[in-house]
């Protein structure tokens, strides 16, 4: 454990040193060094902007992502269970899938105007399809034996979903949830650059537009990376609990 921490922190130290050297060698306007960036983070914190922007971004992700979660998982499961529903809707889903959520920005602004709702809508879109597709596949991959056992004990359709299908699909669903949360976090930053005037994505464009403050830009990027990392490790922890319970990689 200690060894791992040591290796990881020496990696960070090497990168910081390289950054510092590069910043010293380049023109100050091209690459702010680590110290100005740390100062910029401090400046944002003092002004209260840091907390406000982080909360704004997380707020949008929370709403868009959780709305996608509660709709996409049931719909995906229903599609996975019903052959005709899948035949009817799958081509449509596969057509929408390759469209980047950012391609929806004009439509989002047209429908919801510039503001939170647009950003939330984009995150919802970005999360919905991967979650629905993953739920559908999770149902396809279910062990038929588990389903039969559930039916044998007299479960109706809903009870079967709740007591057999969901728990059986949970390991796969958790992986999809983690990957999708990563996508949602990528998309919120992009959406905030265009559709709203708060949040970490807005911070980045705003810092550039209002006086080329690249120290603030990098500070914003750093925050985005840090929070993304925290979100990912949070869901990963959930995943590990579930996996350990079932004896995978305990």
């Amino acid at each position: 454990m200690l060894r791992r921490v040591l290796i990881a922190s020496s990696g960070v130290a090497v990168l910081l040193a390289a950054w510092q050297l590069a910043a010293a060698a380049a023109a100050p306007s091209l690459l702010p060094g680590p110290l100005p960036v740390v100062r910029a983070v401090g400046e944002l914190a003092v002004k209260g902007l840091l907390l406000r922007y982080v909360v704004a971004s997380l707020f949008r992700v929370t709403w868009g992502y959780s709305m996608a979660l509660v709709t996409a998982v049931p719909i995906g499961i229903a599609l996975g269970l019903s052959t005709w529903a899948e035949r009817a809707f799958n081509p449509f889903i596969q057509l929408l899938r390759p469209i980047s959520p950012l391609g929806w920005i004009p439509i989002a602004i047209l429908w919801f105007g510039v503001g939170d709702l647009s950003a939330i809508f984009l995150i919802f879109l970005a999360s919905f399809l991967p979650l629905a597709v993953a739920s559908m596949h999770a149902v396809h991959n279910l062990d038929e034996t588990n389903l039969r056992a559930g039916r044998n004990f007299g479960l109706g359709r809903l009870a079967l979903v709740r007591r057999v299908i969901l728990p059986a699909a949970m390991p796969q669903l958790l992986v999809a949830m983690r990957i999708t949360l990563g996508i949602a976090w990528l998309v919120v930053v992009a959406a905030e650059m265009i559709a709203v005037n708060s949040g970490l994505g807005f911070l980045i464009v705003d810092a550039r537009n209002a006086g080329n403050r690249y120290d603030l830009v990098i500070a914003g990027m750093l925050m985005i990376g840090l929070i993304g990392l925290l979100l990912d490790s949070g869901v990963r922890r959930l995943e590990r609990i579930e996996m350990r319970r079932r004896g995978y990689g305990a």
């Binding site: 056992a149 044998n152 007299g154 728990p167 059986a168």
Partner: peptide, 20 residues
Amino acid sequence: TEPDRRRIFVFQERGVFPWL
């Protein structure tokens, strides 16, 4: 015509639910 809880099928141990 359908499975019934009064008649239970035992699969070769694969039928146990791994999440319980």
